[in-house]
Design a protein around this nucleic acid. Structure first.
Lengths: 147, 147
DNA sequence: CTTTCTGCAAACGATTTGCAGCAGC
DNA sequence: GCTGCTGCAAATCGTTTGCAGAAAG
């Protein structure tokens, strides 16, 4: 996500403080790496970009950042979990997941789809009592490189 | 999924054979359990229902059934993976995932949403070269019990 | 200063696998 | 009867955790 909020670092320190956590170099480094990536990253990818970080601290800090509402963890059928900045920092988006190589790319929301989704959420609430907070739309197929 | 194909067992033996695998009691037992559930099941849930099955065989056979195209594995943020019958056996559907208790329920596709999805898939292919094979729509929120 | 964070190495737990005996075909 | 499946127990590997020293406020 390149289009990050102008006040990303403000949000970071504010939400960490609200969560009773300190703002440390490791934690801003993680937010930076995730903020510059155009897709959710695995921990090996993060470590490749920032070899100075200790693996255990990355795991620990991603938990902290997730609890602070700054980072979102997503699990695919791949072996590693992936992390991205929270949607309210990067904008709502969906994922293209390659069934062959496992890569994940972000795409912006498609207006007609989002509109249909709003109607669907209302229907579901009426029919099942389920109260939707957010939704996830993934397209699964072959990326340009694999097809 | 209660509305299973009338020829479920036919599909099972045929696809196992195509995959060069034998049809065994354990494997049909798994298909039965998944076919009767209204939602994707974890391995502990499967073992609870069929305590006679060995855990390692369940893991192994779910891999075989997935490769044969009979079963689909889904991963949530929950600690266990979940398994369901392939969509062409049960019908296309989506999931309601409770952010609080982690439960997953199936819901039928919503026509307006599916129609919008078709348009979106075309747009994505044109813009990014990604060739969509299937899609996944999950609504995340609070189930009737947790809200 | 005090409290929280970090890095190392050891622990954990869901899943996978080696192997000897059993079952599909 | 061969070959592939099963069950047990041991191994694997992503992730979590305990602890002593370092850094945030």
């Amino acid at each position: 996500m390149v289009n990050r909020s102008p006040d990303l670092s403000g949000a970071v320190s504010e939400r960490l403080e609200n969560a009773g956590q300190r703002l440390t170099g490791n934690r801003s480094a993680l937010v930076d790496v995730l903020g510059e990536a155009a897709r959710p990253m695995t921990i090996p990818e993060i470590l490749e970009e920032r070899p100075d970080l200790a693996q255990s601290s990355v795991y620990r800090n991603l938990v902290v950042l997730e609890q602070a509402g700054l980072v979102h963890r997503i699990v695919t059928n791949d072996e590693f979990a992936r992390y991205e900045l929270a949607e309210d920092l990067t904008g709502h988006h969906h994922h293209l997941i390659c069934a062959n190589c496992g890569s994940v790319e972000d795409i912006p929301p498609i207006p007609a789809l989002e509109a249909a989704m709003d109607g669907a959420i209302t229907q579901v609430a009426r029919r099942t009592g389920f109260h939707t907070e957010t939704h996830r739309i993934d397209l699964i197929g072959l990326c340009a490189r694999c097809s």
